[in-house]
Design a protein around this nucleic acid. Structure first.
Length: 641
RNA sequence: GGGGGCGUAGCUCAGUCGGAUAGAGCAUCAGCCUUCUAAGCUGAGGGUCACAGGUUCGAUUCCUGUCGCCCCUACCA
């Protein structure tokens, strides 16, 4: 280099289209060391530079930017006839586990669960698009307090035996997950009014953990039925799973006992002999909190985390450490597996078992990287789990444990009012109200999906009265899913969603249906073209560099092409930042750009044949990029809208 | 008390390693359907990027402090 300075040359996108395709701010970086004005440095850098292939020109702009302009025809030619199949396979053959959904199997799924599942599923799709090997796990806490409460409700409040509960499950006129939603709210209220009844919970938990007796039996059939309902709900949104690891197997197969021995051996936890945690096995706060080491004894507060209670039972975190170890293949033991169910496309979901394994079962676990999609309120517990791995000497795996956190979905005051939820004066002043399963307060996932479908159906019916009813309903479903998935993805993860029904039901503006509509419009052009001119031309043979050069002199066409060509880097960026919202935003921008193009240009009626074919090709390219991006977001494009 | 997050247009939110004139949607107002479908397009108004310092060629972005809001801080999960 001219200045004898080694520097990573960074590239960035100019804020404005008129500044070219790439900007090199290197002169600014050098300015500090060279004590020269950035503009002067840029001039020296460009002086005598040889022409670069694919680059049309370099120029200095602003007070020191070097703007790069690409050779448009060459760039377009590369997109018309891609040189070989350059699939973006960055997969290194290492398995990635994404754990998401993880709903307590004691009641119907609500909108908060939808955010988790949609975020997780979209991230999975993004990774798979890049060629990664991904395993989707949905952890089932079938022995926890929430299940126990509903079981206690059936057993003690409703006086139902296992066979009675099974009848409810088998009754097609009853939505069992909704029934449990209400029962859970009722028993939670009952506990509050009559604290003595909390003994039921203890009794039920004990029964479920032992795995024997009527309480355990009711526990199994309730949890299984609810899991079935959850998978059905999620499948409506195109969300599938590979394996369902259950807490009952973690208990019965002694996963915890193994992890416990490891933790004791390596001194990750110790037996507390005094203070409030006397008689417990605890992890010192210094393990999972940096600042804790210095100020251990301020106010005498003990911030250690209890792993094993004084009565000898293990906390959730303890089990989670064992589970996390298994995910990395570090526990030294495995579950047994049996088939749970199969999706219509044949994809098999497996569930863990403590008996014996099906011969066909694939190998689960043993990943190199693990994403846990869990809401941000649990970041403290996730920190403890990771600290556990680190304390055991598994530093690399601790680093590869990623808490894919997101903020909760709350309800807007307006939506609460619409649903008849009473609000205190204090709540009314807040921007949002937290949902509560214990109070039965929230929006059920299936209700929301149903309402979206009905709203979409009304639109489709008014626009296409001549189309068959089942077709219209299918399309309404696609639109509903598009609206819902986009709505859940448009916010970045650390933003609390104040769920507003009116906003969620919107199909205009920055929404999924807006993007779907753009794609439908493009498809209409192809249909009309075929009606008028016959089959679509073979673009590779028809379009030559001269024609492309001429066509893309037009700045708006060029900008459109450029934007559409960036879908791959949009996915890269979204994966790197862990923000599916970035990809959603890209899809919206692409749709918006297409709508502008659609409004300005007539493809079919263009009289110049070369130009018509060029317009058609650009439409085709935009369409395929939009459809594939929407696909990664889990949004399909209807036949008509 | 401790830990974490947030504060950007009337509302809901983006804002890429610190970079060029701070963006989008909704809402409001004014326009555009004989056209490849108006779930669309064009335009207008709307900003002390919470506040005060600091770092430097340059700060919405990084640092410190103040104010306000939220979450976590259980032998629940």
């Amino acid at each position: 280099m001219k200045f004898q300075i080694e520097l990573p040359v960074s590239l960035e996108q100019p804020k404005q289209a008129g500044f070219g395709e790439l900007a090199v701010p290197v002169a600014f970086q050098l300015a500090r060391q060279l004590k020269k004005p950035p503009k002067q440095i840029a001039e020296i850098l460009l002086d005598g530079l040889q022409p670069i292939s694919g680059v049309a020109s370099l120029e200095i702009a602003g007070n020191g930017y070097i703007n790069v302009r690409l050779d448009r025809a060459a760039y377009a030619q590369g997109l018309v006839s891609p040189a070989g199949l350059t699939e973006p396979t960055v997969g290194r053959g290492c398995k990635i586990i994404v754990e998401h959904t993880n709903i307590n199997p004691n009641k119907a799924a609500h909108i908060g669960h939808l955010r988790n599942a949609i975020l997780g599923d979209t991230f999975v799709r993004m990774l798979r698009q890049r060629g990664e090997q991904v395993e989707v796990q949905n952890y089932i806490d079938n022995t926890g307090v929430q299940v126990a409460d509903v079981v206690a409700g059936f057993h003690y409040m409703e006086k139902k035996r296992p066979a009675d509960v099974q009848l409810l499950i088998d009754n097609p006129a009853i939505r069992f997950d909704y029934l449990c939603w209400d029962l859970y709210a009722r028993i939670s209220t009952f506990y509050k009014e009559d604290p003595a009844s909390l003994a039921w919970r203890a009794e039920t938990l004990h029964g479920i953990e032992s795995g024997e007796g009527e309480l355990a039996e009711v526990g199994y059939i309730v949890a299984d039925a609810i899991v079935k309902a959850h998978l059905k709900t999620m499948y409506r949104l195109g969300i599938q799973y590979d394996v369902l690891p259950r807490e009952s197997e973690i208990l019965h197969l002694q996963f915890w006992a193994t992890a416990f021995e490891l933790l004791k051996q390596r001194g990750a936890i110790y037996f507390e002999t005094e203070g409030k945690n006397k008689g417990c096995w605890v992890m010192p706060a210094s393990a999972f909190r940096e600042s804790a080491a210095q100020e251990q004894d301020n106010d005498g507060v003990d911030d250690s985390k209890v792993i094993v209670r004084s009565n000898g039972t293990v906390t959730y975190v303890g089990k989670d450490i064992a589970y996390q170890l298994w995910k990395f293949g570090l526990l030294g033991k495995d579950f047994f597996y049996r088939p749970w169910s199969a999706y219509p496309d044949g994809h098999q979901v497996w569930v863990t078992s403590d008996q014996s394994s099906d011969q066909q079962a694939p190998h689960f676990g043993g990943a190199a990287k693990v994403y846990n999609v869990i809401d941000s309120r649990q970041s403290y517990l996730q920190d403890v789990v990771v600290a556990g791995l680190r304390a055991l000497g598994f530093g690399a795996q601790a680093d590869a444990s990623i808490h894919f956190s997101y903020e909760m979905v709350a309800l807007s005051p307006r939506t609460c009012a619409q649903m008849g939820i009473p609000l205190s004066e204090e709540d009314k002043r807040r921007p949002y109200v937290e949902v509560s399963g214990r109070k039965g307060l929230g929006v059920k996932a299936d209700d929301l999906i149903d309402q979206l479908i009905e709203t979409a159906l009304a639109e489709v019916e008014s626009r296409h009265p001549e189309e068959p009813a089942d077709k219209r309903r299918h399309i309404a479903g696609q639109i509903a899913i598009g609206a819902l998935r986009y709505f859940m993805l448009k916010f970045t993860r650390n933003s609390v969603i104040a769920f507003d029904l009116q906003e969620a039901l919107a199909f205009e503006g920055e929404t999924g249906p807006y993007a779907q509509y753009s794609a439908v419009r493009a498809a209409n052009i192809f249909r009309k073209y075929a009606e008028r001119f016959g089959e679509l031309p073979a673009f590779e043979t028809v379009l030559n560099t001269d024609a492309l050069k001429d066509f893309f002199e037009n700045d708006s066409f060029w900008q459109l092409l450029l934007l559409a060509s960036k879908s791959g880097s949009a996915i890269e960026r979204a994966v790197a930042s862990g923000e599916p919202a970035h990809l959603a935003k890209y899809a919206f921008q692409l749709a918006q750009a297409f709508n502008n193009f659609y409004h300005d240009q007539r493809v079919i009626t263009e009289e110049d044949e070369t130009r018509r074919i060029l317009l058609l090709w650009l439409t085709k390219y935009l369409y395929s990029q939009l459809v594939s991006t929407l696909g990664v977001l889990g949004i399909s494009v209807p036949e008509y809208m």
